[in-house]
Design a protein around this nucleic acid. Structure first.
Length: 490
RNA sequence: CGGGGUGUAGCGCAGUUGGUAGCGUACUUCGUUCGGGACGAAGUGGUCGCCGGUUCGAGUCCGGUCACCCCGACCA
């Protein structure tokens, strides 16, 4: 074990390899035997649960409610919206039969050819279609609006190439689907949800994000506008971390959803959909981690404080007696504390292991501290440790957690801002973009230019940022956009 | 779907011109350790991806097949 973990201390030449190793060694997830899928292990899932908890709270504050819709979608639903089907058709898993039978040799099972479904079912790649098919029955009057539902579920997209957390065939996410009476309300909702995601990313994940609008090429299949938050990973590449779509009336029309408005006239509702996935865990890992392993933001760390008593059995008992009230008090403050007094692992191993797992604060106490009335505190973000008076340790730990949360966010902002460049010259851009980072550039708004840039430089347009979207300084009506050399995913 | 690669113990790998299946690590037991990834001793664990062929004999040679990985293409 020790040797295996030591390998991690040398960052691999290949950033992707380093990322994959980290996930396995920190006990977050492992590759499934099923192609392109991932097994999320308890420690990794605990992070997801903390994210879910907070996001769910934030969604409910906007008026959304949780619901659940079926996993299987009739094939015909998908084709109701032309762009939507075109976008997703290539990556759908399809259910064609509903029964197996024993094979002729009697030593296995085969698909029963007599059990073919009349209409094939798609394993949901996203749920717009089945939800809007349901909304048809739920929406009759302007009084039924707005209708705001969210579901926590899994989806499946048969991706050619997969990477843990960033793009797996099956992944966990949340998808919100809202219906409004007016265009303005819907667009405002799409923007509001993006703000919610941005707030969550920055305040909880400590991941700074750029907010903006996707280009037409990168837009969600079936949407009029896709709003996105883009984070910068430590290799200078972008990661799309959440999207919120203004769907217009496309899905409402495709599924014949109408309502009677206040004037007693038939009207068509306006839609939004918004989602974030377990990819957020990938963002977390790639934003903060260092060569010692994960660095988790205290607000999302499953274990916020680990307490390690040192010495032989009798000494540990004496130390624990002193520590127990402190642990109680920390827990009373809502801080999750793990006491690791296992006697089958040496302290050095425990230290390294909790660093690998990104536990923000470590408290260590032994016979020496007991004598001196001190305790050792280590913070994961800077790896600094100091011996402090035992008195007031609870308050100190509480403040330290908050300090770490702020510090890693600041660090991420500093890194990102140091890699954002403004560029007015295409030749200069072509040269500089090779090293990664975000580039604020001009763009004539056409897909041709976008494709050309991608071909010549591998850079993609991540978004047109909100704050400088309508920059027309140069008189061409040209908008500033962010481009990065390569994205981790789109 | 193209180009390349790999399948041998839980994981990482070696296996020479064909001759009894190996190493590291993990795991189990015992002992000594324990303030930064301990050490010693003894153990457990494998139809060598699968099917067929050549041979007295195949992890090794030949044919087929399956799976996975990497690079492309693709990727809301």
């Amino acid at each position: 074990m020790a040797k295996e973990l030591k390998e991690l201390t040398k960052r691999a030449d290949n950033y992707s390899q380093w990322y994959n190793d980290l996930i396995v060694k920190a006990d977050l997830a492992e590759q499934s035997a099923v192609r392109g899928c991932m097994v999320i292990k308890p420690y990794g899932y605990a992070i997801w649960e903390k994210m879910q908890q907070q996001l769910d709270k934030m969604f409910k504050e906007t008026g959304a409610q949780n619901a659940y819709f079926p996993l299987l979608i009739p094939k015909s639903f998908l084709s109701r919206e032309a762009e939507h089907v075109e976008g997703f058709a290539k990556e759908c898993a399809v259910v064609t039969h509903y029964r197996l039978k024993t094979n002729d040799a009697g030593d296995g099972v085969v698909v029963d050819p007599n059990a073919r479904l009349e209409e094939e079912l798609i394993v949901r790649p996203t749920s717009e279609t089945i939800i809007w098919n349901t909304y048809k029955n739920w929406i009759q009057s302007w009084r039924d609006l707005p209708l705001m539902c969210n579901q926590w579920c899994n989806v499946m997209r048969w991706e050619m190439r997969t990477r843990p957390f960033l793009r797996t065939s099956e992944f966990l996410w949340q998808e919100g689907h809202c219906a409004f009476a007016t265009r303005e309300e819907a667009d405002a909702n799409a923007k509001l949800m993006l703000k919610v995601y941005a707030k969550f990313a920055e305040e909880w994940m400590a991941v700074p994000v750029m907010q903006g609008v996707k280009s037409e090429t990168e837009r969600f299949a079936g949407a009029l506008d896709t709003y996105t938050i883009e984070a910068m990973m430590q290799d200078g590449k972008a990661l799309q971390s959440g999207t919120s779509h203004f769907l217009g009336q496309n899905f409402a029309k495709a599924f014949d959803v109408t309502f009677l408005n206040k004037e007693n006239k038939p009207d068509t509702p306006w839609a939004t959909s918004w989602g974030v996935s377990t990819r957020l865990i990938g963002a977390l890992i790639m934003t903060h981690s260092d060569d010692n392993g994960l660095v988790l933001p205290p607000r999302l760390a499953p274990i916020q404080v680990v307490v390690i008593p040192l010495g032989k059995a009798e000494q540990v008992a004496a130390v624990e007696e002193k520590l127990n009230p402190v642990i109680e008090q920390l827990r009373a403050l809502g801080i999750s504390v793990k006491l690791d007094d296992a006697d089958n692992k040496r302290p050095g191993f425990k230290f390294a292991d909790y660093e690998l797992k990104g536990v923000p604060v470590r408290l260590v106490m032994g016979a020496r501290d007991l004598e001196n009335g001190t305790i050792e505190v280590m913070r994961r973000d800077t790896l600094e440790k100091e011996s402090v008076p035992f008195e007031g340790i609870v308050e100190r730990v509480k403040n330290l957690l908050e300090d770490i949360q702020q510090n890693i966010f600041k660090k991420a902002v500093t890194y990102r801002d140091a890699h954002i460049y403004e560029c007015d010259n295409y030749e200069e851009f072509k040269e500089k973009v090779k090293d990664g980072g975000f580039f604020l550039c001009h763009w004539d708004g056409t897909a041709e230019t976008e494709a050309k840039i991608k071909e010549e430089t591998q850079a993609t347009i991540r978004c047109v940022p909100f704050r400088i979207r309508t920059d027309t300084r140069r008189g061409y009506g040209i908008r500033k956009t962010i481009k990065v050399p390569r994205a981790h995913c789109t």
